[in-house]
Design a protein around this nucleic acid. Structure first.
Length: 292
DNA sequence: TCCATTTGACCCTG
DNA sequence: CAGGGTCAAATGGA
C-alpha cells in the first residue's frame, strides 16, 4: 500500500508541475510512476498467487506464478515447500486473483508395438523411431534469461542433450529438441522441446515428454542416484536459472511426472522480466522498506 | 579422446 | 504431400 501511495504522490507531483516540465523530465517522471505502480502490482500478485496456491502445498508440484505490471512482466516459480514460508513472510493479505493454472490434457497415444524398422529412402540401415507416444506431455511457458546467454532454455535441474533443431512453420524461432543426457545410460526416456514464442522471444514454450528414470540432477547431483561408475555429466542445456538467479525452481520433471506419471498437463503463461529482478523482488519481500 | 552441438537427411503422422 | 520429430555424420570444444 505504501508503494501505491507513493505512486499517487508522484502522480500529484507530476500533475502540479506538468505545464513547465521538459519532455525529458516528463518521461523520467512517467517512468518512475509506472515503475512504482508496476512494482506494487507485482507484489500484490505475488501475495495473491502465494495465498491462492496454498492448496499446492498439499501437492508436490511447483507453483508457477505469472504476473505482470504494465509492460513489465515477470515469472516466478516457487517450490511448494517454500510457499508457506513466503506466505508467512509476506504476511498474506488482501484478495487478488491468482494466475496459477493447471490444465489437464490428453496424454499421447499408444505406441505401435515395435514401430517396425524401415529401410529409409536410400539408406540401408533401418531406423527405429518413436513419436508422440511418449505418454504424458506437459507444456510450460517459462521466461528466458534477459542477461547473459538468452538463447539458453530455462533450467529444470536436469541435464539435457540437444539432438535436433527445426524451423517450424509459422514460428519465428526454431524449435530445439532435447533428450535426457542419461538416455542411454539409464534408458531415460525424458525429452523436451524448447521454442521461443513468436510474440515474446523472451519466453520459452517448453514441452516435456516422458518422465525421468535417471534421477540425476544438474544442480544437485546425487551420487546415490547414479551408478557408481556413472558420470554425472555437467550441464548441457541447463542455465542455472534456478540457483544462480535465486529462483526457487523445483525439480519440475519430478514435480510434473515423478509421482505416478499421471498424464496431467500444466500450461502456464509466464510473462517475464529480468530474472535477476525476480530475485530481488522475491527475496526482498520480507525486509523491503517499500521504496522504489 | 570424449562428449555435446550442429545440421542436413530421413521418415512418420495427419 | 507437408510439416514435424529423429537420426547420425560432421564439427568443435574441453
Amino acid at each position: 500500500m505504501s508503494m501505491v501511495f507513493h505512486g499517487l504522490i508522484l502522480v500529484k507531483e507530476l500533475e502540479s508541475s506538468l505545464p513547465e516540465k521538459s519532455p525529458e523530465s516528463l518521461s523520467a517522471s512517467l517512468d518512475e510512476i509506472a515503475k512504482t505502480f508496476g512494482d506494487a502490482n507485482e507484489r500484490l500478485k505475488i501475495l495473491l498467487a502465494i495465498k491462492n496456491s496454498e492448496t499446492a502445498l498439499n501437492q508436490s508440484k511447483p507453483v508457477m506464478i505469472a504476473h505482470a505490471s504494465g509492460s513489465d512482466q515477470m515469472l516466478m516459480q516457487i517450490e511448494p515447500s517454500l510457499m508457506q514460508e513466503y506466505w508467512l513472510r509476506c504476511g498474506g493479505s488482501t484478495s487478488y486473483q491468482t494466475q496459477l493454472m493447471t490444465v489437464d490434457g490428453g496424454g499421447g497415444r499408444n505406441l505401435t508395438a515395435g514401430e517396425e524398422s524401415r529401410a529409409g529412402g536410400g539408406s540401408s540401415t533401418p531406423r527405429q523411431r518413436r513419436r508422440k507416444d511418449e505418454g504424458e506431455e506437459q507444456t510450460v511457458l517459462v521466461a528466458a534469461l534477459r542477461t547473459g546467454n538468452t538463447d539458453l532454455p530455462p533450467d529444470d535441474n536436469h541435464t539435457w542433450r540437444k539432438y535436433g533443431q527445426k524451423e517450424i512453420l509459422g514460428s519465428r524461432y526454431p524449435r530445439a529438441y532435447y533428450r535426457c543426457t542419461h538416455q542411454k545410460l539409464y534408458n531415460c526416456p525424458a525429452k523436451k522441446q524448447v521454442q521461443r514464442l513468436n510474440d515474446d522471444p523472451y519466453t520459452f514454450r517448453v514441452t516435456y515428454r516422458g518422465s525421468h528414470t535417471c534421477h540425476i540432477y544438474s544442480t544437485a547431483p546425487t551420487a546415490s542416484a547414479a551408478a557408481p561408475t556413472a558420470p554425472v555429466s555437467s550441464t548441457t542445456v541447463t542455465t542455472s536459472h534456478s540457483v544462480d538467479n535465486g529462483l526457487a525452481v523445483l525439480d519440475m520433471d519430478d514435480a510434473m511426472f515423478g509421482s505416478g506419471g499421471i498424464g496431467t498437463n500444466m500450461d502456464f503463461i509466464f510473462p517475464l522480466n529480468d530474472p535477476h529482478e525476480h530475485h530481488h523482488h522475491r527475496f526482498r519481500l520480507d525486509d523491503d522498506d517499500g521504496d522504489k
